[in-house]
Amino acid sequence: MTKRKFIQLNRKWHRYLGAVLGIQFLLWTLGGLYFSWTNIDEIRGDNLKQSKPSLSISDDFVSPSTFLNTGFTSEDNVQSLELTTILTNPIYRVVLKTTDGVKVKLYNAKTGKQRLPLTEDEAVQIAKEGLKISANLTNVEYLTETGKHHEYRGRPLPAYAITFAKPANTTIYVSPEHGNIQTFRSNKWRVFDFFWMLHTMDYEGRDDFNNLLLRAFAFFGLFTIFSGFSLFIITSKTIQKSFFRKK
Results as ranks from 00 to 15, higher is better:
N136R: 10
R155K: 15
S65T: 11
K103I: 03
V78P: 05
N69K: 13
V62E: 02
V104K: 07
T119E: 09
A109E: 01
P117R: 08
Q114C: 02
T146V: 15
N69G: 07
K128M: 10
T146E: 12
R153D: 10
T84Y: 04
S58L: 13
I126Q: 07
K132I: 09
E75D: 15
T73Y: 10
V124Y: 04
D60E: 15
V104T: 15
L157R: 09
H150M: 06
D121V: 09
K128C: 03
P64W: 07
D76T: 10
P90I: 03
I86S: 01
L118M: 09
S65D: 14
G71D: 14
N108W: 01
P64K: 06
K113W: 01
Q125V: 08
E122W: 09
D100E: 15
V140K: 04
L83D: 04
K110S: 08
P117E: 06
Y152R: 09
Q79G: 08
T146D: 07
S134A: 14
V140M: 05
G147Y: 10
S80I: 03
A109W: 00
N77I: 15
Q79D: 13
S65P: 02
V95K: 13
R93C: 00
A109H: 01
N69F: 05
L106G: 01
T111L: 01
A161F: 03
E122K: 12
Q114G: 02
E129S: 08
N108P: 02
